[in-house]
Amino acid sequence: MINFPIIDPDSPGKMLREGLRAVEKRRGIHLTLHDCRGILCREDGRPFFPDRGMHTHPYCLSGRFELPGWNRRCHEECMLRAEAAGDRLRKPFLHHCWKGVTELVVPLERNGSPVLLLYAGVFRTPGASPPDDLTPELRSVFDTLPSPDGQLSEELALELQILGQGILYYADLCRNRAGTPQGQSSQIRRFLEEHAHENVGLAELAAAMHLSASHCCHVVKYHFGKPFHALLRQERIRRARNLLESTGMPLKEVAAAVGFRNEFYFNREFSRECGISPGEFRKHREKMPVVKQQAEQLCHQ
């Protein structure tokens, strides 16, 4: 009897990662996940996909951190512009990069705005030329890239929409099974998941639950033992930890993605919650295990 793999709802990360690798192998592509709001993580902020937030195809990665201005251009092109296009189009599209390559981008929505972008590629853009300052090694890689195939793109678009919805489903299921009660507390948690990156407060939660602000305040404290603003801050910090570990997003953009009004406020609140600044957290996350453990402990006190 064949022992088929099963996705564990309590800890789906491993099997989801294996599923992505299976799609890559079968299709001959690289997949990148842009977690727009930092929601693909465990309760402690550890990302499900720590190695998927940056394009890892050799052509995309090589030279990015060595040649002047390349990292900035890659970030602007494949994150800012692609996300803006996903927000505008709300459907799969082909994104043409300044390096002469093309990727299929599939946006996944929640409450009318993209929360996840799946990138599949890379393909050589028909008629495009690579940058003039491309090294001979990278030019040889460019020459071996396949051209985009219409049928492949259509099949991938459907496949990645289903895959992306499955990823979002298991991320939600994992968090809901991690001790989240049902009833009003479940409504509060769901509100945080859907709106933490927006400019919301107790008034908006009360309206969503059809309660007065004072009654809603008591309900939140009854179920969670703390006021709503503390829950909101913790949710944003949790998402920020995910993005700091799994992406190279600048701190200013991490702050905006998870709902902080500016980088200064983000630094202050992150340090208050975790006992370490966002920059220090990113710098020492992998290099200093002791600091990593201390930050995790402080974030759960």
Rank of each mutant, 00 (worst) to 15 (best):
N176I: 10
N176L: 15
N176S: 12
N176H: 11
R177I: 05
A178C: 10
G179Y: 02
G179M: 08
G179L: 03
G179R: 07
G179S: 08
T180W: 02
T180Q: 13
T180A: 12
T180D: 07
T180N: 10
P181L: 01
P181D: 05
Q182I: 12
Q182E: 14
Q182F: 07
G183F: 00
G183T: 09
G183Y: 06
G183K: 06
G183L: 08
G183R: 07
Q184P: 03
Q184E: 09
S185L: 07
S185T: 10
S185V: 07
S186H: 14
S186R: 15
S186C: 10
Q187T: 04
Q187V: 05
I188P: 00
I188C: 00
I188S: 04
I188N: 04
R189H: 11
R189V: 14
R189N: 13
R190N: 08
R190F: 01
R190K: 13
F191Q: 03
F191D: 01
L192H: 02
L192G: 03
L192V: 06
E193H: 10
E193P: 02
E193V: 06
E193Q: 12
E194P: 05
E194R: 08
H195W: 01
H195A: 06
H195D: 01
A196P: 02
H197M: 11
E198Y: 02
E198T: 06
E198I: 04
E198M: 09
E198C: 09
N199T: 13
N199V: 12
N199W: 07
V200P: 09
V200H: 00
V200N: 01
V200G: 01
G201E: 01
G201C: 00
L202K: 02
L202I: 13
L202A: 03
L202D: 00
A203F: 08
E204M: 06
E204I: 07
E204W: 05
E204P: 11
E204D: 15
L205E: 05
L205F: 04
L205P: 12
L205R: 06
A206Y: 01
A206H: 00
A206I: 04
A206R: 09
A206M: 06
A206V: 05
A207S: 15
A207R: 14
A208S: 15
A208K: 03
A208Y: 04
M209S: 05
M209R: 11
H210E: 14
H210F: 11
H210C: 09
H210P: 02
H210V: 12
L211Q: 14
S212L: 01
S212D: 10
S212F: 03
A213G: 12
S214Q: 14
S214D: 12
H215P: 03
H215N: 13
H215M: 11
H215Q: 13
H215S: 15
C216V: 03
C216R: 08
C216K: 06
C216F: 00
C217L: 10
